[in-house]
Design a protein around this nucleic acid. Structure first.
Lengths: 94, 94
DNA sequence: TAAATTTGGTTTATATTGTAAACTTGTTTA
DNA sequence: TAAACAAGTTTACAATATAAACCAAATTTA
């Protein structure tokens, strides 16, 4: 009846990050932080988890002498997100 | 951009219970336990939380000499569920 | 009829999380 | 050059989900 919801995506902040990354080509740390209204520490931790799961790719560089963390969703991440959304529908079905 | 997701509903099991209660007039403990594939302890705890939040009404009686716990969603619960679903849409928007 | 099993739960313990506060490293500004 | 700021990371804590253990009453079995 109810499909299991991927615990990695069933988290407000991680879902928000993934939702943004589904819509844009890539996003940097500060952008994600602002759009989600989350604290930096929280964003940092959740980006790590998503990266470790292979849902996103993270690249670190410098822009204007300052660190720049750029995130991009992976194929695995897209698949996981779509699966999660489908599973959600078994709960909210309409 | 992203709306907050009611933490009480953003839980796989509680969402499953509420989803069932949105669809039926009322449901008893064993039915909820079976449909959600959860353990009795887990169902018991989550029913308590939903009741304390005023999202469901719980009635205890006896059927065939055995305890019977019956749950029914409240108006507050219906409103909360609908709000949750709308907020979810800001994440999965499509 | 005493013991074992089943039913319908509740309570308790634990392991996992989510989260923010505190910290770090480097840069800009006053 | 001290203070403030930027961009994160690490750490600590509180909250949560979950299942194991437990309980009481009824039923079945030996």
């Amino acid at each position: 009846m109810f499909k299991d919801l991927d615990p990695l995506l069933h988290s407000q902040l991680r879902l928000g990050i993934m939702s943004i990354l589904m819509a844009v080509e890539h996003a940097d740390f500060t952008y994600l932080k602002e759009k989600t209204n989350a604290t930096a520490g929280n964003v940092s931790v959740q980006i790590d988890k998503l990266e470790k799961a292979g849902y996103i790719k993270v690249a670190k560089s410098f822009r204007d002498k300052r660190p720049l963390t750029t995130c991009k969703i992976s194929k695995t991440g897209i698949a996981a997100f779509e699966k999660y959304v489908n599973h959600l529908k078994t709960y909210i079905n309409k």
